[in-house]
Design a protein around this nucleic acid. Structure first.
Lengths: 358, 358
DNA sequence: CTGAAAGCGCTTACAG
DNA sequence: CTGAAAGCGCTTACAG
């Protein structure tokens, strides 16, 4: 019986081999059983017996070291993946990532370690790329560090971003939502309901996803020969005043939060949503986002919006990354995918009011 | 500059050494920086520079094979961590794990890899303990594979279970909820409301957490000299009939699902909850659990229940594990913690009815 | 202070 | 069919 005080030593192939009276390599051969019949039956039998007796289990470290791939996909986020209070933003992404990683035979390494700097994690700590311990990495989250992104591209580290990203250092592989198309589609929806003054309200902070929504909006405006009215969320009441002044009847708003705040302001001024003001949300709720708008969205509202296929995005990103790792792609080629976002009809968009508001 | 046309190979210490004009061992020495000053300053400088240029990152398999820690905590679950449909059971646990891992400077390795057997993951795949890649591991989830647990204990692999667990192979480190105490407290609550016939309804499938609730219930019964009535969820209508036959006025029910089903049956028989039948739930909702009971809980009910401190449990488990890894505990010693569960007064428990029901 | 070597456990050509 | 050897990337005594 082993001593309880000691860490147990594992049985190695060498010990099994000794017991079976064969070479260590023979044990490995039997274990991996590659071509089936290259081992003599009685030898195999002896080895199998020795394996059973010793309770041998393969050491995955040795195997993976030999195999030159650790079978580990990194997952990097600039914020905590599992926030305490609010609902679950990363959940669906990670669900897709997990599912596909499992299917592809990879483990998932979440980079949570060396604390944050100014409340945000870093890819490069002390000059070294932390992600390098994984074979490749999925990055996600609204916030991006441009310098780090550039450097990652420059280093040719294999990674895929969830969400469209641009880098001055070269093309980036990503899987995003097609916000431009979805925004344009939402515009068409309100247009079909006779809205002729449609405004856009987006983040004041610039990012690819905000830019994509704007470009979809601008495209739709152009198509209908309307002058765009694109506002940002820096000052809620100013936005609302502007909407009234311009006699806007439908607002396309980047987040549920902003939409809720807008509705509150409208209600406060005696306007009804959607009878007097239709409100479309440019993507379903992302509860962890912060903004200049004070109100939390009422969770019981069926917003008219579009659905961001988060789970699919996660799975797709893993598939692309694994393809890169397997060398199935021409090296240097980047895969850039935008997945369609399905329109969701809610209760916050209706026909344009007949008479002008006042 | 590397060639774009090639699959990116990891940079090894040997390559760094070549660049710096030193031996590979020297690179390792600089990296591990053990005693501080054993490397000549200018040599160290050259190595550091070469490390920077090459973007070297250590290979965790090599390191681990050599027996060193990688500052990685494994997280193992028998089911997918991020299920698609249902709400989030693991979320709060993982939140605590992530938070504490971050504080302690560890990354998190989710074992998702080599697929499942019969829909459930395995610790040992082809005889190999997959967890060994990590320095130690947190295990969680309602389901447990006894054979695997025994073997883990036997191997002396450092791990902490979330949820109390017993193994015939020896003591297990765990952080659980104190369901026995919380169940007894809930019993006291209904007792104080003049209920004198209080039944327990739990899973038919035996597990530590089910057993703990029962033992809390039995303890309370004994204290008040009442004959216990402990039923299981195998047949919902049979349970309900039994409750009526025994003139039970308060049922303590293991899950929200069972409670909802029970209420539905009660309503169908013209009984009101809580006026005719008080229902307490032994722990707040765990939406991924399946049971023999058909109904999904109505999410708008304020059940009288107790709160399982999931986030704290996760954080605490990590702290214990890190303690083990740092060798701060006598080896072989196991830490077993049960955290208190706070009572939550809802709307499903009220005073016992005056007249006997009929 | 530094290099050469051993060895962690494994797989896979390569000789016999 | 089988054994001996090389080597995956790393750390750590051990000589110099």
């Amino acid at each position: 019986m082993r001593h309880v005080t000691q860490r147990r030593k594992r049985v190695t192939q060498a010990e099994v081999a000794r017991l079976a009276g064969v070479s260590q390599a023979m044990v490995s051969l039997v274990l991996n059983d590659s071509d089936g019949v290259r081992v003599a039956p009685e030898t195999r039998q002896r080895v199998v017996e020795a394996l059973r007796q010793t309770g041998y289990t393969v050491d995955i470290m040795g195997r993976r070291l030999r195999g030159k791939s650790n079978q580990i996909i990194g997952v990097f986020t600039y914020e905590a993946v599992f926030p305490s209070g609010s609902a679950d933003f990363y959940g669906p992404f990670l669900g897709g990532i997990e599912e596909e990683a499992e299917a592809q035979g990879f483990d998932l390494l979440l980079f949570t370690s060396p604390g944050r700097r100014q409340g945000r994690r870093k890819v490069y700590e002390q000059g070294s790329n932390r992600l390098g311990i994984a074979d490749g990495c999925i990055l996600l989250g609204r916030h991006t560090d441009r310098a780090e992104l550039d450097r990652l591209v420059d280093e040719r580290f294999p990674f895929v971003f969830i969400g469209r990203r641009e880098s001055s250092a070269g093309p980036v592989s990503y899987v995003g939502g097609d916000y431009a198309a979805a925004t344009a589609a939402l515009y068409e929806r309100v247009w079909a309901l006779d809205h002729r003054r449609v405004a856009l309200v987006g983040y004041h902070e610039e990012s690819e996803s905000t830019a994509d929504r704007r470009s979809g909006y601008l495209r739709a405006c152009k198509r209908h020969r309307k002058t765009p009215l694109a506002l940002n969320d820096a000052d809620p009441s100013a936005v609302f005043e502007r909407l009234r002044a311009e006699e806007v009847t439908a607002a396309l708003v980047e987040t549920t939060e902003m939409a809720a705040a807008l509705r509150a302001l409208a209600t406060g001024s005696g306007l009804r949503v959607p009878e007097d003001l239709s409100v479309g949300v440019l993507g379903d709720t992302d509860p962890t986002q912060t903004s200049a708008w004070p109100l939390r969205p009422a969770s019981d509202t069926d917003w008219t919006t579009f659905r961001i296929p988060r789970r699919d995005m996660g799975a797709r990103a893993v598939r692309i990354l694994v393809g890169m790792l397997r060398g199935e792609m021409e090296p240097g080629r980047k895969t850039q995918v935008l997945l369609p976002c399905e329109l969701v009809d809610g209760t916050t968009v209706t026909e344009a009011p007949r008479a002008p508001r006042r």
